[in-house]
Write a protein that binds this DNA or RNA. Structure first.
Length: 458
RNA sequence: GGCGCGGUAGCCAAGUGGUAAGGCCGAGGUCUGCAAAACCUCUAUGCGUCGGUUCAAUUCCGACCCGCGCCUCCA
C-alpha cells in the first residue's frame, strides 16, 4: 500500500518513492528540520516532530528495516543560541548542550524514535564553507563590504517556486535593508561576519575572501543534507513556517551549488495553536512538555492529543483535549491488553493503515482504530494491534505517574475506612472517603484490598 | 496588499454528488454497599450565510460573512 503525501511544491498528493528492495544501497532519504537549541521546545514544536516520527515509522513499516535514512538536525549556532549564551553568561556549547539534552529527554518521553543521524551546525562548518565558496565561484553569492556573504536570488530564476512569492512585498523597512549590506532585499546571508559586541567568542574562519564569522541559518541544512543524504533527497519536511524563507533558500543554495534537484518531495505540517493563535515565546502562550507533565498528564497522552488533528490543518491545543486523549489512550491500552495472541482476522486494521498512508490522516486512522476496538477483541490478534500502536508510537504502557509518597495520615484514614467497610459501617466508610478526597487522594476499592491514588489536577 | 488554510453536534474531528466515521463530555443501564474502573445503549433530518448547477449538495460553482497562518526570529 503506497504512501501518499501532500507535496508543497506541486500542491498535490504524490506517492512517495519506493526504494529498490533488492538494492541494499538504495534507501529512502528523509530530512526533517530540527529544533534550535536555545530553550525548551514547546508542544507546538513537538507536534511537528511527532508527525514526522509517525511518518518515519510508516516508512520503515512499508519499506523494511534499514531502507529509510532519517536525518534531523540541531541548530546550535544562530542569533538566538548566541544571544541566550550571552544572557546566561555561559559558553555557546554549554547552552546548546543543556537544551539538546532536554530536547532528547522530551523526545524520548513522547516515544519519538531517534533519527538515524542528528547532525549539528557547528559540527559542519567546513561543509558549509565549502558550499559557500562554490556558490561564490559560480556567481550565486557575493561578499558584502563587512565581509559577510549573501546569496543573490537574482541569480536563481526559479527562486520562489515553493512559496509562490514572486515580488516581495516590502514590509521591511529600508533601514534593515541598508544595515545588512545586501544588494537586494530578498538576498539572504550565507555567512555572517563576526561582530565582537554580539558574538562573544563564536567565530570560525570564513570562506575565501570573506571575514571570519559564522554561517547563516539556511546553509546548515543544505550542507548537512549533502553530507549525510546526498545531493538529491526523497523527502524534506518541517513546519509550515519554514516554507518561506528557510526552505526556499535551501533550494536556491543546494540547487545552485550542486546543479541537481534538491528534494523530490516537500511536506509541511501545520501549526498547533493555543487560544486560537500560534504559540510563541514572545506571546508567552506556550506549553512545554514539562508543564503538562506537572499537570499529571502522561507524555504519551500528549502524543495522542497531538495526533488528534490532521497534520496539515491548524489544531487548537487545549487542556480539554488532553483529558479526552487520556481517556482514549486508556481505552486503547485496555483493548490491546485484552487481545488474544492469535487470531484469524489479520486484516482487521487495514482501514487504519490506509488512512495513515493517505496523507497521514490521523483523525480518520484513529476513527478506524476505534471502530475496530468497538467491535471487540474477538478474532483480532495482539500482534496486529501492536503494529498499529507501533505506527502511532503509542505502543508502550503509560509511564507510571510520579509516585507521590502517601502521607501517613491518609494511610491511617484508608485503613480505618477499609475496616469500617468490612464491618459494614458504611456511614463511617463514606465519611472517611470524603476526608481522603478532601486531602487530595482517591481510594479505589477492589475485592481484596484497595489502592490510593492522588486525585488528578484539573 | 500578496500567498495559503479553515468554519460539520456541548467540545475535538473525519468524510462523501444520493441524505453524516470516530474520540471526549452528557444521559440511561449492567456490575460492584458507595465511589472508581469495565462493559452495553442513546445523543446532528443537518454540515458559516445567500444564490446557482443537478433527479439529488454538507460534498461542485459564485458571492458574501467570520476565524487563523505566512510574507525574511519562528515547528
Amino acid at each position: 500500500m503506497a504512501i501518499r503525501l501532500h507535496d508543497s511544491l506541486t500542491r498535490s498528493l504524490q506517492e512517495l518513492r519506493r526504494p529498490d528492495p533488492t538494492d541494499p544501497r538504495d534507501v529512502f532519504t528523509f530530512y526533517n528540520c530540527g529544533p534550535t537549541v536555545y530553550g525548551p521546545a514547546h508542544i507546538g514544536n513537538f507536534r511537528t516532530f511527532v508527525v514526522n516520527d509517525v511518518l518515519r515509522r510508516l516508512l520503515e513499516l512499508e519499506y523494511g528495516p534499514g531502507k529509510v535514512k532519517h536525518v534531523r538536525n540541531l541548530t546550535d549556532v544562530d542569533d538566538r543560541t548566541i544571544g541566550q549564551a550571552k544572557k546566561d553568561q555561559r559558553s555557546l556549547a554549554e547552552i546548546t548542550r543543556k537544551w539538546t539534552d532536554l530536547f532528547h529527554a522530551d523526545c524520548a518521553a513522547l516515544n519519538c524514535l531517534p533519527p538515524h543521524v542528528e547532525p549539528t551546525a557547528t559540527g559542519h562548518i567546513r561543509e558549509q564553507v565549502d558550499m559557500i565558496e562554490v556558490l561564490m565561484e559560480k556567481g550565486n553569492a557575493y561578499r558584502a563590504p563587512d565581509g559577510s556573504v549573501y546569496f543573490k536570488i537574482a541569480s536563481f530564476p526559479e527562486y520562489g517556486a515553493l512559496s509562490r512569492i514572486k515580488e516581495r512585498e516590502l514590509k521591511v523597512t529600508n533601514s534593515a535593508f541598508d544595515a545588512d549590506h545586501k544588494d537586494d532585499i530578498g538576498d539572504f546571508a550565507l555567512w555572517k561576519a563576526y561582530k565582537p559586541e554580539e558574538d562573544g567568542d563564536v567565530q570560525w574562519p570564513g570562506p575565501r575572501t570573506a571575514a571570519a564569522g559564522r554561517p547563516g541559518w539556511h546553509i546548515e541544512c543544505s550542507a548537512m543534507i549533502k553530507r549525510h543524504l546526498g545531493e538529491t533527497i526523497d523527502l524534506h519536511t518541517g513546519g509550515v513556517d519554514l516554507l518561506f524563507p528557510h526552505h526556499e533558500n535551501e533550494i536556491a543554495q543546494s540547487q545552485c551549488c550542486n546543479g541537481t534537484i534538491f528534494a523530490r518531495h516537500w511536506y509541511h505540517s501545520e501549526h498547533l495553536l493555543v487560544d486560537g493563535t500560534t504559540m510563541s515565546k514572545s506571546k508567552g502562550n506556550y506549553y512545554t512538555l514539562g508543564d503538562l507533565v506537572q499537570k499529571d498528564f502522561d507524555p504519551l497522552v500528549v502524543r495522542l492529543a497531538l495526533l488528534q488533528g490532521h497534520p496539515r490543518k491548524q489544531q487548537n491545543f487545549t487542556l480539554d483535549s488532553l483529558h479526552s486523549a487520556d481517556k482514549a489512550l486508556t481505552t486503547i491500552h485496555s483493548y490491546w491488553q485484552s487481545l488474544p495472541l492469535k487470531a484469524d482476522r489479520a486484516t482487521a486494521f487495514d482501514a487504519v493503515f490506509s488512512a495513515l498512508h493517505d496523507d497521514l490522516n490521523f483523525p480518520a486512522a484513529l476513527g478506524a482504530f476505534f471502530t475496530v476496538i468497538n467491535r471487540g477483541p474477538s478474532g483480532v490478534a495482539k500482534s496486529d494491534c501492536e503494529k498499529v500502536l507501533f505506527a502511532l508510537g503509542l505502543g508502550r504502557e503509560p509511564a507510571k505517574r510520579p509516585d507521590r509518597r502517601i502521607p501517613d495520615a491518609i494511610t491511617a484514614f484508608a485503613e480505618k475506612r477499609w475496616a469500617a467497610k468490612l464491618a459494614k459501617d458504611f456511614a463511617t466508610a463514606d465519611a472517611l472517603r470524603k476526608e481522603i478526597a478532601a486531602a487530595g487522594w482517591s481510594m479505589l476499592d477492589r475485592k481484596d484490598g484497595y489502592s490510593l491514588e492522588p486525585l488528578k489536577k484539573a
